[in-house]
Design a protein around this nucleic acid. Structure first.
Length: 276
DNA sequence: CATTACCTGCAA
DNA sequence: TTGCAGGTAATG
């Protein structure tokens, strides 16, 4: 998905739902629904409940319905949007997997072509018992240096896959990882045990910079993902390496390379990011 | 560690 | 037709 900046954008744009009363829930996608038995159970339970709070942790979006939580994970191709809206086009109505209906006629639609996304519905205790949430690390946004260093140093291995482990830092995905490593001038395969304090400091401030820049740009629109109101993110216009194979490094002019790290496509500047 | 599976769509 | 895609879980 949709990494941290995208989910943060979704959170902000879903805030108008606060105060609305649910009238029902439908889903044509049983595999994507967790904890609750089926869509009919959710629909019965959610009816009459008011949206009181919306927040994000890592890549997960939490919606509080009067004490019951509906938690969304967009995975690779999910998006959430509010309908009806005049700028919602037919393209966005394809692949709607689930819908929360509200008494004023508003609908919150979960659209997900690849069906990798997940919706959990249950009490806060039930949610926290799910393995994904019980192991989830602290949110990557606003993480203090000391904690960042401690968590990174508690493992060994290639730095990029570690940055992307959600039980270490929640919210870092492939784009944020590549952009952060480029900003910091560190090779994605560099073993963390060989990073010096100065490197970890650079990584920490690069991560903060990339996350804030991504959020300010309203996330990255590459294929599926868009804002809940149908507008596109702008971060793709600012990426320094991600997806720019063959392009010039904006720092030194070298050609950006695509390599594979931890089985993920990875873009680097071979001159700025050398293995030590 | 790496590989595969889960799915669909799109570009090379 | 093949390969690749923002993520994660389940396997070797």
């Amino acid at each position: 998905m949709p990494e941290l900046p995208e989910v943060e954008t979704v959170k902000t744009k879903l805030k108008p739902l606060i105060g609305k009363i649910a009238s029902g829930f439908t889903s044509s996608w049983p595999r994507g629904l967790k904890i609750a038995k089926n869509a009919a159970c959710v629909s019965r339970n959610i009816k009459g409940r008011k949206v009181s709070k919306i927040w994000r942790h890592g890549k997960a979006l939490f919606v509080d319905f009067s004490g019951r939580l509906m938690v969304f994970h967009l995975r690779m191709s999910g998006r959430l949007y509010i309908a009806p809206k005049r700028n919602v086009i037919d393209q966005e109505n394809k692949h709607v997997r689930a819908t929360v209906k509200f008494t004023d006629g508003t609908e919150l639609r979960f659209n997900d072509p690849r069906k990798f996304g997940v919706i959990w519905y249950g009490s806060p205790e039930e949610i926290m018992k799910e393995s994904y949430f019980s192991t989830l690390g602290p949110d990557a946004r606003g993480l203090r240096y000391k904690k960042f260093e401690k968590r990174l140093r508690s493992h060994r291995g290639m730095v990029k896959p570690l940055l992307m482990r959600q039980n270490l830092f929640a919210g870092i995905g492939n784009i944020v990882a590549d952009e952060t490593l480029w900003e910091a001038g560190i090779h994605p395969k560099e073993p963390v045990e060989r990073l010096k304090m100065a490197d970890i400091k650079k990584l920490h401030s690069a991560l903060k910079k990339v996350l804030e820049r991504g959020i300010r740009a309203g996330g990255t629109t590459l294929r599926d993902w868009k804002h809940p109101d149908g507008t596109s993110g702008k971060f793709q216009d600012y990426v320094k390496v991600y997806g720019r194979k063959g392009g010039r490094c904006l720092r030194c002019g070298s050609r950006i390379q695509r390599i594979v790290v931890g089985n993920r496509g990875t873009w680097i500047c071979p001159k700025c990011q050398k293995i030590k």
